[in-house]
Simulated scan of single mutants.
Amino acid sequence: MKNIMIPTDFSENAWNALLYGISFFEKTHCVFHIVHVSSMNTNASGETPMYISPEILEDSLLKESIGKLKELLERIQQLPLNPKHKFETVALYGFLTDHLKKEAKEREIDLIIMGTKGASGLKSVSIGSNTGNVITKVPCTVLAVPENSTYHRPVEVGFPSDFQLKYNVKILDTIRDLITLKKSSLRFLYISAKGEELSEQQQKNKQILADYFKDIEQSFHMITGKKIDAAVQCFAESRNLDMLVMVAKNLNFLERILFRPTVEKISYHTKIPFLVVHE
């Protein structure tokens, strides 16, 4: 039985992430924990807001959230019934990442699935601030599903790595379980700034990955280029990737791929789901 958490803001983007998760785990016994976290909106008009006590405000927002979650469950019930799936809802008030950390621990969550809605310009932060915060601050594996992504079996999964770190078994187990579940192929990508060879330690880490995933169809690729995001874009297009896997432990490398798109041609953020694995 897997415990899957899906944060929602009741947008179509969040609904798309939910549909993706339901389809991805169609043959797996799952409990989907649908969580909505209400936070106090800042007053953008510049006018002095009418004072409302925090208790009354929280109670009002929670009642509204509970009502919307009930409507969401009714919408889910219109989908084809899958007896392997169970849905639970949670309405909370406060800071998103704080609550998700707590809920993930208490509910023994295996995976968080979130929709990503990028900024209007791809030169801006294009994965979305909420999703970015959850990826970097909540110690749980996250599957980020772009708003323009629809589910199909991930045949080709890309795994960009600089081979600088030795990943622990828990990280590799998580990746292998999802790869095996979908009978996917794993394509490792090393991006070299100047075409330099791997160091001895990088060679060892690369071999560990090759050995660990020896029972899965795999291949290793190298692209020379200074711009990591552009290199990932080129690789994603050339291999027609269905998903990208990253490891949160390698935060600097992760941020250069997910949070710093520098050219308008970077479109993998808007199409390809990202699996970010935590220890």
Score class of each variant (00 low, 15 high):
70 K>G: 14
7 P>I: 05
39 S>Y: 09
57 L>P: 04
163 F>K: 03
215 D>E: 14
35 V>L: 09
87 F>I: 14
116 T>E: 08
273 P>T: 08
178 L>W: 01
54 P>W: 02
240 N>V: 02
227 K>P: 07
196 E>K: 10
167 Y>F: 10
189 L>C: 13
124 S>F: 11
163 F>S: 03
204 K>R: 03
73 L>Y: 11
74 E>C: 12
2 K>T: 00
93 Y>F: 13
266 I>V: 15
101 K>C: 14
264 E>I: 13
123 K>I: 10
118 G>V: 01
63 K>T: 11
43 N>C: 08
65 S>V: 14
255 E>W: 00
190 Y>M: 15
160 P>R: 04
67 G>L: 14
30 C>W: 13
62 L>A: 06
29 H>C: 15
167 Y>S: 01
5 M>Y: 02
156 E>D: 06
10 F>N: 06
29 H>Y: 13
12 E>C: 05
150 T>I: 13
83 P>G: 08
80 P>E: 14
187 R>L: 15
59 D>C: 05
166 K>D: 12
243 M>R: 01
48 T>Y: 08
95 F>I: 14
65 S>L: 14
32 F>E: 10
209 L>E: 07
15 W>V: 00
38 S>W: 04
103 E>I: 10
275 L>D: 04
182 K>S: 03
105 K>N: 12
117 K>A: 04
215 D>H: 12
